[in-house]
Write a protein that binds this DNA or RNA. Structure first.
Lengths: 209, 209
DNA sequence: CCGCCGTTGACCAAATCGGTCAAGACCCCA
DNA sequence: TGGGGTCTTGACCGATTTGGTCAACGGCGG
């Protein structure tokens, strides 16, 4: 790819990346046209092919960038949690989810794009990139749980399952919305918090409420 | 549409409908080609246009049929629950979810197709059909809750929220899988049941465990 | 032998595809 | 004023795909 792309003002890079991710997120690699991406971004198709030699190259770059962005946000979050010494499961989870929503706000197409890219049938992604994502996902839950004080849960509760349930519900919410306006995201976050609060109320021992 | 379509053997109708729904479920109306549908079904494109005058007509018919299928399954389920007099929230919900999974098995593309169709930006669907789906969804939860014995829940539990949380998790599971093999569906169902069991264990009063 | 019915491959004009290219618009430095 | 460099574009290319048509095929009951 043409490295002059990084000389563009940050907002313009974001504009192009977000448009591309949103467009790629709506359909398969083949069905997504460079024209549509350019139109959504409000630039000419020629400009895209000026910075990226291929549709493929643009695609790989986006995936790479998406994972890096996730990783960076994730690491920053871990750092912050270590700094404040937060050990409460639900408090930390809420913090994490808030960060995730901020990411959705800044890069509305990211998650759908990553998911679609991961399950793309034509192998347009190198196995190396695929593995990179696998590693990120596998580590995150484990390292999260390791830092939490799980003794607050009633006997018989599987904290990993709680994480999974809340994550699933978040994915479900994300799946059933299409517009990613600020209010929409706030609504999602409120619903998520309501669910988390319910679980907290009934899964924590009484002395921790 | 050409009504001779209904003279076809049921399996052939299913084959065509399922192929079309799967294909339409993968992308927008515009991006989905009649050719791809025909190829997936293993029939000629000419045959499709023999039974349906348009891509649009095929689309509308599919949506209509999908809603009707949901309604019929739903009504049958209500009937059966009335017959057996089931009033336990989680038992009924599990039954309902099992039925839903059976439907996924028989019509793998249905839910994704309906969701995509509902949020399709180009208004290819008549508002009448849209409204029909809204009515189905609104009624189902209400009439379900009305029949259940909600006194088994601990004080402070909102049963509607429990339904919503479990529905969301199911949607999330459905969103993160792409293959709809029998084993895959079983796996989904097992995970759903595990979550439901957890909620039951901690949201029901002790005397009902 | 006919006529009917489900089915098809070949075909069409039109649109869309990924990608190229020469040139415009704007800047700073001389 | 005149370059030279950078960002950006409209017009254009051949190739592919699009939705949709049509004449004809095979099989089957009468």
């Amino acid at each position: 790819m043409n490295h002059k792309f990084f000389n563009l003002p940050q907002e313009r890079q974001d504009l192009i990346r977000n448009s591309a991710m949103l467009e790629f997120g709506e359909g398969s690699f083949k069905k997504t046209s460079a024209d549509a991406i350019a139109k959504r971004a409000g630039v000419s198709k020629a400009l895209l092919f000026h910075y990226f030699k291929d549709k493929r190259e643009l695609y790989s770059y986006l995936f790479q960038h998406a994972i890096d962005a996730c990783m960076e946000v994730f690491n920053r979050q871990v750092e912050r949690m270590s700094y404040f010494g937060e050990t409460d499961f639900f408090a930390a989870l809420e913090q994490g989810h808030k960060v995730k929503m901020d990411m959705v706000r800044r890069m509305p197409g990211l998650f759908r794009f990553v998911m679609r890219a991961y399950y793309e049938r034509d192998s347009v992604l190198s196995p190396r990139l695929r593995k990179k994502l696998d590693d990120v996902l596998a580590q995150s839950t484990d390292s999260f749980l390791a830092r939490m004080d799980l003794s607050k849960f009633k006997d018989g509760v599987d904290p990993r399952q709680v994480v999974r349930l809340l994550t699933l519900s978040a994915e479900g919410m994300l799946a059933e919305t299409n517009a990613c306006t600020a209010e929409e995201i706030d609504r999602l976050f409120r619903e998520y918090k309501k669910n988390a609060d319910m679980l907290r109320q009934f899964l924590y021992k009484e002395e921790y409420l």
